Amino acid sequence: GTLHLNGVTVKVPSLEKAIKAAKKFAKKYNLEVQVHGNTVHVH
């Protein structure tokens, strides 16, 4: 999967790991997580 954090793109081995990391990051910075196919966006 691919993880987008505020314009930074990170390749992640699995989508589940990407979503987990995204949710952790989003919670910390009070951001929103959106999943588009195998790409996770945090903004």
Rank of each mutant, 00 (worst) to 15 (best):
Val42Trp: 04
Thr39Gly: 04
Tyr29Ile: 06
Thr39Arg: 08
Leu31Asp: 01
Lys11Tyr: 14
Val40Ser: 01
Val10Gly: 03
His43Pro: 01
Leu31Gln: 03
Lys20His: 06
Val12Ser: 03
Gly37Pro: 02
Ala18Ser: 02
Asn30Lys: 07
Val10Asn: 02
Leu15Thr: 02
Gly37His: 06
Phe25Ile: 11
Val40Pro: 01
Gly7Val: 07
Val33Ile: 13
Val12Pro: 04
Val33Glu: 00
Pro13Phe: 04
His41Ala: 13
Val33Leu: 09
Val12His: 07
Lys28Arg: 08
Asn30Met: 07
Val42His: 01
Val10Lys: 05
Lys20Asn: 09
Asn30Phe: 11
Tyr29Gln: 04
His36Met: 13
Ala18Cys: 13
His4Ser: 08
His4Asp: 07
Lys24Leu: 08
Lys20Glu: 13
Gly7His: 08
Thr9Glu: 10
Ala21Pro: 00
Val12Phe: 15
Val10Leu: 11
Thr9Arg: 09
Val33Arg: 00
Gln34Trp: 14
Gly37Val: 08
Tyr29Thr: 04
Asn6Ser: 07
Tyr29Glu: 03
His43Arg: 11
Tyr29Met: 05
Asn6Phe: 15
Leu5Pro: 03
Val33Asn: 00
Asn30His: 12
Gln34Tyr: 14
Ala21Gly: 03
Ala22Lys: 01
Val8Leu: 13
Gly1Phe: 15
His36Ile: 15
Glu32Pro: 02
Leu5Asp: 02
Ala22Asp: 00
Pro13Ser: 14
Pro13Ile: 13
Ala22Phe: 11
Val42Ile: 14
Asn6Arg: 08
His43Met: 12
Gly37Tyr: 05
Leu3Gly: 02
Glu16Asn: 09
Gly1Asp: 09
Ala21His: 08
Gly1Val: 14
Leu3Glu: 01
Glu16Asp: 10
Leu5Ala: 05
Ala21Cys: 14
His4Lys: 05
Glu16Thr: 11
Lys23Gly: 03
Lys27Thr: 07
Lys23Gln: 11
Pro13Asp: 12
Leu5Val: 11
Lys27Ala: 09
Glu32Trp: 08
Val12Trp: 13
Glu32His: 12
Thr2Tyr: 15
Ala26Gly: 06
His36Gly: 02
Val12Asn: 04
Val35Pro: 01
Asn30Gln: 07
Val33Phe: 09
Val33Ser: 00
Leu3Pro: 03
His43Trp: 13
Glu16Cys: 11
Val8Arg: 13
Val40Lys: 00
Lys11Gly: 06
Glu16Met: 05
Thr2Ile: 15
His4Gln: 07
Lys27Glu: 14
Leu31Ser: 01
Val40His: 02
Thr9His: 10
Tyr29Trp: 07
Ser14Cys: 13
Glu16Pro: 06
Leu5Arg: 02
Ala18Thr: 08
Gly37Trp: 05
Leu31Gly: 04
His41Leu: 14
Lys20Gly: 04
His36Val: 14
His43Thr: 13
Leu3Lys: 03
Ala21Val: 11
Gln34Pro: 00
Gly1Thr: 08
Glu32Thr: 13
Gly37Ala: 03
Lys20Ser: 10
Val10Ala: 04
Phe25Glu: 02
Leu31Pro: 02
Asn38Tyr: 06
Glu32Gly: 04
Leu31Ile: 05
His41Lys: 09
Gly37Asn: 06
Gly7Asn: 09
Val33Thr: 01
Asn30Trp: 11
Lys20Ile: 12
His41Gln: 13
Lys11Leu: 11
His36Trp: 06
Gly1Ser: 06
Ser14Ile: 06
Lys27Tyr: 03
Lys24Glu: 14
Pro13Leu: 08
Gln34Ser: 14
Asn6Pro: 10
Thr9Ile: 15
Ala26Val: 04
Lys23Trp: 07
Lys20Phe: 03
Val42Thr: 02
Lys24Ile: 10
Glu32Ser: 11
Val10Ile: 15
Thr9Pro: 07
Leu5Met: 11
Ile19Arg: 00
Leu3Asn: 02
Gly7Ser: 05
Lys23Phe: 08
Leu31Phe: 07
Val35Arg: 02
Val12Leu: 15
Thr9Leu: 14
Leu15Lys: 01
Val35Cys: 08
Lys27Trp: 02
Lys24His: 09
Gly7Leu: 07
Lys24Thr: 05
His36Asn: 12
Leu3Phe: 01
Ala18Val: 07
Lys24Asn: 10
Leu31Arg: 00
Thr2Cys: 15
Val8Gly: 05
Lys17Phe: 10
Gln34Gly: 05
Ala21Lys: 08
Val10Arg: 07
Leu15Arg: 02
Gly37Thr: 04
Asn38Ala: 06
Val40Asp: 00
Pro13Asn: 12
Tyr29Arg: 04
Phe25His: 04
His4Tyr: 09
Thr9Val: 14
His4Phe: 06
Gly1Gln: 07
